[in-house]
Design a protein around this nucleic acid. Structure first.
Lengths: 234, 234
DNA sequence: AAGTGGTCTAGACCACTTT
DNA sequence: AAGTGGTCTAGACCACTTT
C-alpha cells in the first residue's frame, strides 16, 4: 500500500473515531511528519487527498481543519455506488430485469466508440437502496472487453466482477444529466405515475487505458434519491 | 504565478490549440521536464491538475493521453458559473428580482451557522444562459461577512464583487440536490406550468477560512439546463 | 516576529506497460 | 530489456496568518 494512502486512511479513521466538530484544528504538518515518520511531500499528498474528498480543509498560514460532515440520506453523486458517507454503508441491492446480446444502435456505437457489428451485452436492472426503488438502469457493455455475463453476475456488482475476473481497471467516467419526465415503461418499473419527474443520467465508463467499456442510461426515482457534491473552489 | 499552474495552463492551451483527437499521446515526462525546465514533481503536479479537470488521463507505464472533449450545451455541474467548456464562454446574464435585509429563519441560521439575530441579505435572481431562463436563485448572505450589496452589484457576479471588494476568498462548497416539482411562484418566474419538474439545489459556500457566507436555493429550468460531471475512479 | 501551510528541486527507486 | 509514469526523501525557501 502506498504511504500517502496509508497516512490519509489513518487520519480519516481518527477523525471518524473522535468525531470532532467542524472547524476543529488537527495537528500541524511538522507534527504529522514526526508522528507518521514520512516526508513533508507524503503528508501534503495525503492531506490533499482528504481535502478533495471533503473531509478536511487547509488554510495556508493557519492550519488544517475538519470539515462539516455530510447530511444523511444524501448519496455522493460522484462516487455513487449505493453508499452515503464513507463510514456507514447503506444496504443496497439489485434486481435483474433483462440480459441479452445485441448489436449496437448508432448512438450506442458512438458512445462506446465501437463498430456497428460488435457484440454488446444489454443489461437492464432496478437498483434499490434501503429496500426503496432507487433507479432504473439500462447498461451496454462491449463484449470484446467484458466477454461474459450471466443473471447471477448482474444481480451483484458488475464492476467488482469485471475488475476481478477480466482484470479491467476502471479509469474514469463522463456523466451527462438533465431533468425530464418518465415514459410509460420506465414509470411502470419505477412504480410511479407516467409523467413523473426524474433525473435522467447518461454515463460512459472508461478503462484506465482510456477505452469506453460501459454506456449506461439511468432514470432515478425522484422521491427516493437525493445527492450531494462537495467542491473545492477558489 | 505558481510554476505548476503555469505549466498546466500551457499544456492545456496547446491541447486546445491543436485539438488532438481523444487518445492522442502527449510528450513523456522526461521531455516535459526538459521542455518546461522544471522538476519532475512540478510536472506531475501540473498533470494531476489537468487529469482532475478531465483534460487528460495518465496510465502508468504507458503514457499521458488526451481525454474526450465534452459535449456542447452541457454545463459543468461542479464549477457551473454559466460556462460550458473552459475554452469558449457562453453568454450569461442575471436579472435581479428582490433585495432585502432580513433575519434568518431557523433553517437559514443553521446552514449559515449564525445567530437568529444576525442581519442577512436576501437576494432573489433569475439567471439566463444564451438568453434562455436557466434557473431561479434565492441566496442568503451573512451581512457580517458581506457588508454591502445593491441592485447593480447583484445584477452582475456577486462572487467577483465580494472577492475584490471585501477580500473574501471562496474556499469550498456543499451542494445538496434532488428532483422535484415547481410550486406556483417558482413556475411563474421560470415561465413554466406549475408542477413542472425541476432540479432543486441547496448550496452552502464557505470562505477559505471555513466560514459559511452564502446559502443558496436554486430551481433549474428543466428544458434549458443540462449538466456534466467528469470523475476519476479506480 | 513566530508559526503554519505550500512550492520546488535533484535524485534514487518502484510499478506498470510495451517491445 | 527498455520505456514510461509514480512514489518518496531531505531540505531550502516562499506565502500567508496569527501573535
Amino acid at each position: 500500500m502506498l504511504k500517502y494512502d496509508e497516512v490519509a486512511q489513518k487520519i480519516e479513521q481518527q477523525i471518524y473515531a473522535t468525531k470532532p466538530v467542524a472547524g476543529t484544528r488537527l495537528a500541524n504538518i511538522e507534527e504529522l511528519i514526526k508522528h507518521y515518520d514520512v516526508s513533508r511531500t507524503t503528508i501534503i499528498k495525503a492531506l490533499d487527498q482528504l481535502e478533495r474528498r471533503g473531509i478536511i480543509y487547509q488554510q495556508q498560514g493557519s492550519g488544517i481543519f475538519v470539515r462539516q460532515s455530510k447530511k444523511n440520506d444524501y448519496i455522493s453523486f460522484i462516487e455513487s455506488h449505493g453508499f452515503t458517507n464513507d463510514q456507514d454503508r447503506i444496504p443496497s441491492s439489485t434486481k435483474a430485469i433483462e440480459l441479452s446480446i445485441i448489436k449496437p444502435t448508432a448512438k450506442i456505437a458512438q458512445e462506446l466508440q465501437c463498430d456497428l457489428s460488435e457484440d454488446i451485452y444489454s443489461v437492464k436492472r432496478i437498483r434499490y437502496v434501503e429496500n426503496n426503488i432507487h433507479c432504473l438502469e439500462q447498461s451496454y457493455y462491449r463484449k470484446s472487453l467484458v466477454p461474459y455475463l450471466n443473471l447471477e453476475i448482474i444481480s451483484g456488482s458488475i464492476f467488482n466482477y469485471i475488475k476481478q475476473v477480466f482484470n479491467i481497471n476502471i479509469g474514469f467516467s463522463d456523466k451527462y444529466f438533465e431533468v425530464t419526465t418518465l415514459d410509460t415503461d420506465s414509470a411502470m418499473l419505477l412504480e410511479l405515475p407516467q409523467g413523473s419527474p426524474t433525473l435522467y443520467v447518461e454515463e460512459i465508463f472508461y478503462t484506465s487505458a482510456g477505452e469506453p467499456f460501459d454506456y449506461s442510461v439511468k432514470h432515478y426515482h425522484y422521491k427516493n434519491s437525493k445527492y450531494f457534491v462537495q467542491s473545492q473552489l477558489g
